[in-house]
Write a protein that binds this DNA or RNA. Sequence first.
RNA 1: UGGGCCGUAGCCAAGCGGUUAAGGCAUCGGGUUUUGAUCCCGACAUGCGUAGGUUCGAUCCCUACCGGCCCAGCCA
Length: 550
Amino acid sequence: MNKPTNKNFITNIVDNDNNTNKFGGRVNTRFPPEPNGYLHIGHAKSIFLNFEIAKTYGGKCNLRFDDTNPEKENIEYIDSIKNDIEWLGYKWDSIHYASDYFEQLYTYAQKLIENNYAYVDSSSSEIIKEERGTLTEPGIKSKDRERPSDESLKIFEQMKQGKFNDGEYVLRLKIDMSSPNINMRDPVIYRIKKVEHHRTKNDWCIYPMYDFTHCISDAIENITHSLCTLEFEDHRDLYEWVIEKINHENQPQQIEFARLALEHNLMSKRKLSELVEKNYVESWDDPRMPTLSGMKRRGYTPNAIKDFCNRIGITKKNSAIEMGVLENTIREELNLTAKRVMGVLDPIKVTLVNYPKDETETIKATYNPNDINSGERSISISRNIFIDKNDFMEFPEKKYFRLAPGKEVRLRHAFNITCEKIIKDNSGEILELECTYDPISRDMSKGNKVKGMIHWVDANNCIDAQINVYDRLFSDSDPTSVDDINENSLMVKKSSKLEKNIDLNNNDERYQFERVGYFIKDSKSSNEKISYNKIVSLKDSWKKINKKGI
RNA sequence: UGGGCCGUAGCCAAGCGGUUAAGGCAUCGGGUUUUGAUCCCGACAUGCGUAGGUUCGAUCCCUACCGGCCCAGCCA
């Protein structure tokens, strides 16, 4: 990203900490995903925040996998997460796994027991739940709360040795069962799970929980500012309690910010995986998905995503960003960088009846009028061309200045044509248009001045392709269920025609199909079936005029 | 109804006791342009959830109220 990173309330805190020398001027952050799903644009916000803060303050940002629940986690997710972060262009200073700290965590737990800050509880999860109280009533103390610490220590050891089954015992912190903050009502910090862990394999059958693990991991890694989302605000007391009780020399501070919500999208790993599982979308990297892999396949660039993250800001206010903001970032970048070619998504045959048969001419055009170094392309044209269906109207509305019977328009980069005749099949479907062209108008200054300009492709020299056009995944701006999916979010144009200048060997080249939008080759494209994805439309003020019914 | 947060334009978001209340997106006007694109210019909160209070002065401090979000996993 070439724009400066915006300030926000967190950078204000960091500035202040630096001024008061709270951390001796150090700024260490971390991005701590659980490897239980693919990263999405919401994670990008957090990645951007953490890495950019480290960068602007000359600090460090670690990648740490919060892998304390082996049932949900696996290597595939770890790899995809690393990939996505690298794709965004960030390099972690060091990589860690909470599971690397299992031994230390266990030792800290033992110390807490020794100091009477924790106890082993044999209550069932149902009992613990009941005894926890409610939002308005205090909890009650467990029968095991006063278990002598040497006894707890011994049982905890046996838990580790695998002497018990899942659920038989848990380790709990001894804090305050009547705290108004439910997280402080003797939270469970270790549970027995006889499950193989993707990294530690069968070394452990007890696993520490988030609240115990996260703060200690931060402390161990010398994190200064532990940035997380709003739902952890209530956990901050616990975070600080643990850090204080283990008496660690480094005392990181947790700061919470609002997670990203994007209109017309769902943004939780659970729901995104539901979309995949129910086959509402093709895969995690379906171009409609707000996952980073999906956006990559859609054609979004790391720069555009980072620019987006920068624009939306960081606050504590729950808010939903309009899709237009996201779309605008990629449009802005591609307007400057994308080569222009022509592509006809929904072709109609057009015959230029006065154009000599078997003749072809070559037209020169620039690849990008906004970039003088973009070079020139040659486009062929002949008697037979294709134009887009929506560039012709048999009964044109007011202010429609494209092709219509008897009307003259200009073919982009070429010359003017006039529609003379519509050829239909028996059902009334338009098969073909017969037009005449005006040779004089090759010179723009001659020929008739026309308002309409349409794009086209030489029917005798073009690429057959499939174009995937996407609409928002959910029609509702604030969807709740995956079942609300927009059934028309994917439109496949099967017989599109593309200008020959497209480099089919280049998988990353993003093109502007003039007057239409930006496109990139789909990762599933093949020589047999060439397919391109629409990244985003060009802005279309005709659409607006048309909508108003003028 | 216990606790923790949040409330500045249609959507984001600066602002930290004295400012003409930044900026972006959207929208609306106008100009350039034979991409209805881009680009350029202009408009867009006497107002900061509401009501009181403190103050010479309050978006900023205090109080109350209203509205929204989060918390009762052996998930993270």
